[in-house]
């Protein structure tokens, strides 16, 4: 066992999946010799060959479409979209085909593919490199949408995603790629794709978050503990299908809920979480639900991105508001 980063965990899971199933193959821009712009596929072409680690032409819609065709023929393609800002041309193939191939052929053809993409702001990247598109995909029936927040969860969730018989959108927070290391055993053990993870227990308020906002939320939990407020931190991890029950059980216990995400607020996935709580646990609430999110603005370029991404202070402030509300 060794301590590795999140991006190394992605690499480890891909290598594991390719080693155990010859139908798994990777495709994307610069993923071969170069090992991907973030090095997520580093060394895999040398190990598994050019036919299984394919440097594609620069065409995101085409990459997704090719992956759909491969998957329908029984391969298990893992396609990389280089940055989330370039994922939009691929959405046509994802919503019109990947997500519904099984349904429209009554299970005759299926689409066991993974579309991986880095996402989120905070690494001083150029324009169109900092998007958080998870809510768009979460709206599409037939998909799974996964957002890892630690090396161990990246490894286990990605393995599960590759092995899953249906299409998975796997959104990797770039800011976490090398933020911290964690011991990850390459044991081939996957994590469930239909469960939230309770990262920290607490009785005073539930904070629901995912992806890049998990470290900030955990830091906020430390700060709040100094004030005597114990928050329960839930990493949603798999946004679709959403493990609502875990969230409801926590909110029923704490009576307070803050939802934290980096994506813009309006019609963000936090709205879905809030609506589920409002529909099914309203009478457990001691205070109104609070969302701490990115603003409804275009995600700014590097100079202002720290003003945009929800900070530890904003999360702490959000929790204080729900604590004071009753």
């Amino acid at each position: 066992m060794s301590e590795i980063t999140l991006v190394e965990a992605v690499n480890l899971a891909l290598a594991r999946a390719m080693g155990e199933d010859k139908d798994v193959l990777l495709l994307g821009e610069d993923i071969g010799v170069n090992g991907g712009v973030f090095r997520a596929t580093n060394g895999l072409q040398a190990r598994f060959g050019r036919e299984r680690v394919i440097d594609t032409p620069l065409a995101e819609g085409g990459i997704a479409g090719v992956a759909v065709g491969m998957a329908a023929m029984g391969l298990k393609p893992v396609a990389e979209i280089q940055f989330s800002g370039f994922i939009y041309p691929a959405i046509d193939q994802i919503i019109n085909h990947a997500s519904r191939m099984r349904n429209r052929t009554r299970g005759r053809l299926t689409c066991p593919m993974v579309l991986r993409s880095p996402c989120g702001a905070g690494i001083h990247a150029p324009e169109h490199h900092s998007e958080s598109p998870e809510a768009m995909f979460a709206h599409m029936p037939g998909l799974r949408v996964v957002a890892p927040s630690s090396p161990a969860r990246a490894y286990g969730l990605l393995l599960a995603s590759v092995r899953d018989p249906d299409p998975v959108i796997f959104l990797e927070p770039t800011r976490l790629y090398r933020l911290f290391r964690q011991e990850v055993e390459d044991d081939g053990v996957e994590l469930p794709l239909d469960a939230c993870f309770i990262l920290r227990e607490g009785a005073d308020a539930t904070v629901v978050t995912w992806g890049a906002m998990v470290p900030e939320t955990l830091a906020a939990a430390e700060k709040l503990e100094e004030e005597g407020v114990m928050i329960e931190v839930i990493d949603v991890a798999t946004l679709k299908p959403l493990d609502v029950e875990t969230i409801l059980r926590s909110v029923e216990k704490t009576g307070r809920c803050v939802i934290v995400h980096e994506a813009p607020r309006t019609a963000g996935f936090g709205a879905e979480v809030a609506a589920e709580i409002a529909e099914r646990a309203l009478y457990s609430l001691l205070a109104p639900i609070k969302r701490v999110t990115g603003y409804d603005v275009v995600v700014p370029l590097a100079k202002l991105e720290k003003q945009y991404i929800p900070s530890v202070d904003r999360i702490v402030d959000g929790v204080r508001q729900v604590m004071e509300a009753s």
Partner: peptide, 15 residues
């Protein structure tokens, strides 16, 4: 949209 799928399907058969 079927055109890239055809390429992917053909790639699978070739592989």
């Amino acid at each position: 949209t079927q055109a890239p799928q055809a390429v992917g399907a053909a790639y699978a058969l070739m592989a």
